[in-house]
Amino acid sequence: MTDSAAHLLVVDDDSRLRALLQRFLAEQGFRVTVAGDAAAARQALGAMEYDLMVLDVMMPGETGLELTESLRRTGQDVPILMLTAAGAPDDRIAGFEHGADDYLAKPFDPRELALRIRTILKRAAPPASAPLPPVQLGLRWFDAERGELRGPEGVTRLTGGEAALLVALARRGGEVLSREEIAAAMGTPEAGERAVDVTVTRLRRKIEPDPREPRFLHTVRHKGYVLRPGA
């Protein structure tokens, strides 16, 4: 998929900002659909598939955080870039905890928004380099190209951030990666160490038999994380 072919869903209750984003992103070569609230976003997501959703956090009724959490809980893996007027570190971490792939504080430069969108799309695309063979994690297998975990219970979809983190660790299996290296590999170096920790926690819930006693994704104190695949 090329950037110009990507179809974006922009969700914001501010009609002026919504119109500005629709015009700017269309000028950047994206196809753009807009929605004014979570209910309209759900309707749009039910009608077709989107390559990425740009989602405002503070909306009347169901918030962007609540919508993201609900979508992830029901298996929707569309990449989500959150927009919010609250740009404190804790607010950014909340976005990642609820399943967002990236987070941009208002006010923002539209050019940065376009750059972040392209970064997420590139990260979500099948790798152009040599494909990563399936990675065994106990009774599950990770398919890097599809971003899926397959196991006895069926297919478990991963968010773009979770899949990118697992790919980064799997490509250097048995080697300790620092949080900075992992953030760079995920395409979100500005997100910081806490965002990496949050994504690790979410991923462990999906790959570990007991996330409290990890078998595969280990913490190495003061150094980072290491993946040790196996049966």
Rank of each mutant, 00 (worst) to 15 (best):
E49C: 04
Y50D: 02
Y50S: 06
Y50R: 01
Y50W: 07
D51G: 08
M53A: 14
M53Y: 03
M53L: 10
V57F: 02
M58N: 07
M59V: 10
M59L: 03
M59Q: 06
P60H: 11
E62R: 11
E62D: 05
T63C: 08
T63P: 10
G64T: 01
G64M: 08
L65Y: 15
L65S: 07
E66N: 13
L67W: 06
T68A: 12
E69R: 12
L71C: 13
L71Q: 08
L71Y: 07
R72Q: 07
R73K: 10
R73W: 00
R73S: 10
T74F: 02
T74P: 00
G75P: 09
G75D: 07
Q76M: 04
D77S: 08
V78W: 06
P79T: 13
I80M: 10
M82V: 09
M82A: 08
M82G: 10
L83S: 10
A85G: 15
A85S: 14
A86Q: 13
A86L: 15
A88W: 00
A88C: 04
A88Y: 09
D90P: 01
D90N: 10
D90R: 13
D91A: 15
R92S: 12
R92T: 12
I93S: 06
I93C: 03
A94D: 14
A94F: 06
F96E: 11
E97P: 01
E97C: 09
E97D: 15
E97Y: 05
E97N: 13
H98A: 15
H98D: 00
G99C: 03
G99R: 01
A100D: 08
A100E: 04
A100L: 07
D101A: 02
D102Y: 05
Y103C: 12
Y103M: 07
L104V: 14
L104N: 05
L104K: 03
A105D: 12
K106S: 10
P107H: 11
P107V: 11
P107Q: 13
F108T: 12
F108G: 08
P110H: 06
R111P: 02
R111G: 09
E112N: 02
L113V: 14
A114H: 06
A114R: 09
A114M: 01
L115G: 03
R116Y: 05
R116N: 03
R118P: 01
I120F: 09
L121H: 01
K122L: 11
K122Y: 09
R123Q: 14
R123H: 04
A124C: 14
A125D: 11
A125E: 06
A125V: 05
P126A: 15
P126K: 14
P127N: 13
S129F: 04
S129N: 13
A130Q: 13
P131F: 03
P131R: 01
L132R: 03
P133M: 00
P133S: 07
P133T: 01
P133Q: 11
P134Y: 12
P134D: 14
L137S: 02
L137G: 05
L137A: 05
G138M: 02
G138L: 01
G138I: 11
G138P: 10
L139Q: 14
W141Y: 00
F142T: 04
F142I: 01
F142L: 11
D143N: 14
D143P: 02
D143C: 12
A144K: 00
A144I: 04
E145R: 12
R146F: 10
